[in-house]
Design a protein around this nucleic acid. Sequence first.
DNA 1: GTCTATAGGACGATAGAC
DNA 2: GTCTATCGTCCTATAGAC
Lengths: 208, 208
Amino acid sequence: MPLRLSRSEAKARTRKRLLSAAAEVFAEQGFAGASVDEIAFRAGHTVGALYSHFAGKNELFLTLFDERVSHPLDHVGEIASQWEGDETTFAAFGAYLAGVADHHTVRSTLEMEFLRYALTRPELLDRLAARWWAPRAAVARLVAPHCGGHDPALVATAIIGLFEGLVMQRRVDRAAVPPQLFTESLRWLMAGLARTPVRPADPLPEPR
Amino acid sequence: MPLRLSRSEAKARTRKRLLSAAAEVFAEQGFAGASVDEIAFRAGHTVGALYSHFAGKNELFLTLFDERVSHPLDHVGEIASQWEGDETTFAAFGAYLAGVADHHTVRSTLEMEFLRYALTRPELLDRLAARWWAPRAAVARLVAPHCGGHDPALVATAIIGLFEGLVMQRRVDRAAVPPQLFTESLRWLMAGLARTPVRPADPLPEPR
DNA sequence: GTCTATAGGACGATAGAC
DNA sequence: GTCTATCGTCCTATAGAC
């Protein structure tokens, strides 16, 4: 590893710093509230550098949307490879997600801002929806053997919903959501699958 | 009911319109992105009217925070009064929350924006946390008889988390979260409570 | 109480030096 | 590729007419 960075390495480093700073500021201030000046400043640069890497504030935001915000549950694959439906895996899964709630705060706040931003932009909402397929499928594969006949995709959606909702509540009030609840509630849900009769899929048409 | 409004009635109506318009614009554009001009315009007034009712944009936002955004789960009391742990109640609860996901969109988006806004303002975060006590307690009372020894407060937190997470996913992708899933996943969770051994409360100290 | 007009400031984006 | 300086725009908030 050379002491001095090559031109392209320096450029890549600048870009990376800008993206990290942008993630922070967008999360804290929202899209409209974030100023390109502050983003550049936090990255240790000025607007000039920012505009040489990105066409503008919008493109910077969308680049972040595409490149940087992998969903927390993307990493579920790491845990899936060891899954046995046993206590160890439950605990690992729960601990991992409690950690997400406490430490990946910029990422999850930024995800919220993407959602709000996308809600008024249909084409972005589609891309956001597509983003959830992979983690949902990963969780579905993980739990399929323990679904007791219920649709693994729906079980996965419920599990992801459960964790997203717990993460959200824990960010508001840590005391209300002890870390063990991530594990416990997953256990409750999985135990209930076996005890619940399987119903016909989608007996009602999608309303409206 | 008189045909012409009294002065104070007209004033109250203006205030209400301004608050409704503000809720929409804040939800769509975020706090910083919302302009007082657009809020006033959507309310059918001008900035002058707005500033005669509110000290400024910040106060308008905080007033909304205090007065208008009752959490969806506040209404859980209506259902709680009829709860028997039976299929009818499950279905009503699920249907109600699927409706929230589909129709109360401004409210839930605004809640998201409040959360992001509050995350960098500790005193607001405390008030937001306090906001969740009542619905959590209402759900806890609702499910207490069916908790099988588990802490009803924690069960309530899990249930609320589950629905918040499902609502969020449904707003991104309706097809992924059929309305019945609200009912089904609640059934799974409740059924699992009875089958899961009760663990000692909080065996681990709160980390960090 | 509500409107119109405007002051004062912040921001996104660009131009030109290095 | 990055910086400094600046232009034009949009926004919050206020002042004064009605």
